[in-house]
């Protein structure tokens, strides 16, 4: 493959957060790649200072609306480590269940609504749904409730 090609994406779609991508390709090789994340800072690390340790999980849960449990759980583990607390037994199992629930939810969201359109040549799940309605309606029919992170 010879020649030059430029790929420029000003706003990456179907991801959490904001970014842009620039690729310059020459003779089939990437000659230049630039990736910018322009997500504005929210300063979680700063505003957590001076809060009670019990408040950290609720605050950090708001880092990402797609995977809040990951941050909530990390904050919980951090606080427990700081206090030398080890959680085992049914409570540990419940946490595992909560985390796995989020994995299923987040993976289903990514597979069906965010990534599948790319692999199948559609711009989004709405276009894809015209040909494959079950792919978009799938979560509610076969995995009740798993796609609902909102109350």
């Amino acid at each position: 493959m010879t020649g030059k090609k430029t790929i420029k994406v000003d706003y990456l779609a179907r991801v959490e957060g904001e970014g842009r991508l620039y690729l310059r390709i020459r003779d089939g090789r990437v000659a230049e790649s630039r990736f910018a994340i322009f997500e504005p800072p929210r300063f979680f690390e700063a505003f957590l200072r001076g809060r009670r340790f019990t408040e950290a999980p609720d605050l950090t849960a708001r880092i990402c609306g797609i995977c809040p449990v990951a941050y909530q759980m990390s904050a919980t583990h951090a606080m427990e480590q700081a206090l030398g607390v080890k959680v085992e037994g049914p409570l540990r199992d419940l946490r595992r269940l909560l985390y796995c629930g989020e994995w299923i939810e987040s993976h289903a969201l990514h597979v069906f609504l965010l990534h599948a359109p790319d692999f199948l040549g559609y711009q989004d799940a709405f276009q894809m749904a015209r040909d494959h309605p079950v792919m978009v309606a799938f979560p509610s029919r076969t995995l009740p409730g798993t796609m609902s992170s909102c109350p």
Binding site: F126, A129, M147
Partner: peptide, 23 residues
Amino acid sequence: KFTSCDGCQLCLLDLEEELLTLA
């Protein structure tokens, strides 16, 4: 989207079948 975590727009994607009706 301005400064946020994407969670509120996700409420739309969470609508599932109603989302297709909206579309």
